[in-house]
Simulated scan of single mutants.
Amino acid sequence: MGMSVIISAATAQDAEQILKLQYLCFQSEAELYGNYRIDPLVQTLDSVRAEIATNLVFVARLGDEVVGSVRGSTDQDGTGQIARLCVHPRLQGHGLGARLLRAAESGLVDERSATRFRLHTGHRSEGNLRLYQRAGYAPVGNETGRDGVRLILLEKDVTAPAYVASA
């Protein structure tokens, strides 16, 4: 292969590739919950374009192909909200998700002055939960999403270690 995966800010031209990647990546989540109407699968292209215009959106590129993506925004109390982290199935398990997560965290601190981070994942998404806990996130509660999926809410302070060794 010989190419390196580069992480950079998304541009408006990336919207279609991000949406297609998201649709591919979240199929396994939909299957896990028996719900093919989960939010990432029903998002529109215009909505992705709006997120790129207003939020921090990072992509992982392998050549010209978008192979990973993550979104970040801040709420009124300075908490960085991280969402829609996805990595192409053929590249999962090589640390790309962790790299995208760190890019979102860094961007939220540097560009939006975030003081803490919050994200969520489905309660059955064990791989996601492992990734987030290794990255220093701790469960702080749960809620049911608009799509009916029970979500685990996780947070960490910006001063928390970027990566916690697993036991």
Rank of each mutant, 00 (worst) to 15 (best):
V158L: 08
R84M: 11
S106E: 13
Q133N: 05
R99Q: 15
T74D: 00
T74C: 12
V70N: 00
A30R: 06
A138F: 09
G148C: 08
D46F: 03
P161Q: 12
M1C: 08
L41M: 15
T44A: 10
F58L: 04
C25S: 15
R134W: 02
G122W: 02
A50S: 14
E51N: 13
N55R: 14
G122T: 07
A15V: 01
A160I: 03
L45S: 07
H88Q: 08
G72N: 04
A15K: 02
R146L: 13
R130E: 08
V149H: 01
V48Y: 00
E105F: 05
G68R: 01
N35W: 06
E31I: 02
N35H: 09
T159C: 06
T54W: 01
G122K: 03
G34R: 08
R37P: 00
L108W: 06
I52C: 02
G107W: 00
L32W: 06
A114C: 09
I6Y: 05
L21W: 06
Q27L: 12
I7C: 05
R102M: 12
R130Y: 08
R146E: 15
L153I: 15
V48P: 00
E65K: 14
R49H: 06
L154M: 15
R90P: 01
Y33R: 03
Y163L: 15
Q27C: 02
I38A: 02
N35I: 03
A98G: 12
A167C: 08
V42K: 10
I7N: 01
L62C: 12
Q133F: 04
S4V: 07
R102F: 11
Q13H: 14
K156G: 03
S125P: 00
R71K: 11
L56I: 10
R116Y: 04
L96Q: 04
E143K: 10
E155L: 04
E155Q: 13
G97D: 07
